[in-house]
């Protein structure tokens, strides 16, 4: 038994002549947070719906926890929690009644269900509005209620479609914390999103979708190395001497690119911050800023699609 909870091989979805999902391979490991990234219409949601058996596949195989979503959708849906894009609840019912309906659909024994509902609402910090109608809920609260549903379901896999879209920064932060909480509880989380910096902070691995294909897959650092080239980028702000020349003289530095007034972007094959600081200070310059530049997914994303456009 491998440690993959989802295994996708050659998955295909055709809408007429249009290949919405074009023979993708994908593995999601137990207990990781995996990001499906890409522009709108790249095939992320279609892929998710096929994983859940909510849309028919046109080819390829999917294995979710040992079940085939095409033939055994009930088994898959019993074990997988899904938070759709802009999730909706029944407005005229309270949060508790909404979750109770889900619990009934899951055939959870009644006494068990009440306990699970209050625990789940506790875990997403909505315990105080348990008996309020959902019509009074904000967007962020609805998303959290969606997470509570997944918690209550005791899902082994959580699939979240654009969970942070339309949320304010604070609500986003809280939601990401809850997603980390799911991971701590041993749930494999699959997130689809086009909001890259948010996703970057929680994802262990990501797959970059483009026109129904997976263009890149791996950890953020791996992707950065692949697209932006290997290296360790830092940002230097200093004045007083010919900084560029001084920087180029440091061992390991590969490129020095000016980034605005008095700032340079340096890429080296190792962490050269200590030697940069030493060199600038010892040659009489004043160092005002020295920052380690984490490869940003946004950069990877932008650069990748730029290259695609240039190639086209």
């Amino acid at each position: 038994m491998t440690d993959n909870v989802i295994e996708v091989r050659g998955l295909l979805k055709l809408y007429g002549a249009n290949r919405a999902v074009d023979a993708i391979d994908l593995d999601i490991r137990r207990g990781e947070i995996f990001g499906l990234l890409g522009p709108n219409g790249a095939g992320k949601t279609t892929t998710i719906l096929m994983l859940l058996g909510l849309t028919e596949t046109s080819g390829g195989t999917v294995d979710v926890l040992g079940f085939d979503p095409v033939r055994q959708p009930l088994e898959v849906k019993r074990r997988v929690g899904y938070l759709p894009d802009a999730v909706g609840f029944y407005d005229h019912l309270t949060a508790r009644e909404n979750l109770r309906y889900t619990a009934r659909l899951l055939a959870t024994p009644r006494r068990d269900a009440e306990k699970r509902i209050s625990d789940a609402m506790e875990s997403v910090q909505l315990a105080d509005v348990l008996d309020k109608r959902v019509s009074t809920f904000s967007r962020g609260m609805r998303q959290r209620l969606g997470i509570a549903e997944i918690v209550m379901k005791k899902a082994e896999i959580a699939i979240l479609d654009e969970p942070t879209s339309g949320l304010d920064p604070h609500a986003t932060f809280e939601l990401l914390e809850m997603i980390r909480g799911l991971k701590k509880a041993g749930v494999a989380v699959l997130i689809s999103s086009h909001l890259l910096d948010r996703v970057q902070s929680v994802c262990d691995r990501v797959a970059l979708f483009n026109h129904g294909k997976i263009a890149l897959m791996g950890s953020v650092v791996e992707l950065a190395n692949q697209v932006l080239g290997a290296g360790h980028p830092i940002l230097v702000e200093a004045s007083g001497i010919d900084i560029a020349a001084a920087l180029r003289g440091i061992e390991g530095v590969q490129t020095v690119v000016p980034e605005g007034e008095g700032a340079w972007r340096v890429v080296a094959d190792r962490d050269v911050r200590a030697s940069v600081a030493q060199r600038i200070v010892s040659s009489g310059g004043s160092l005002t800023r020295l920052a380690d530049l984490q490869p940003s997914l946004e950069e990877v994303y932008t650069r990748y699609f730029q290259e695609q456009r240039d190639a086209a």
Partner: peptide
Amino acid sequence: SRVLSQPI
């Protein structure tokens, strides 16, 4: 889609 993602 939320209801249909339950086992029914």
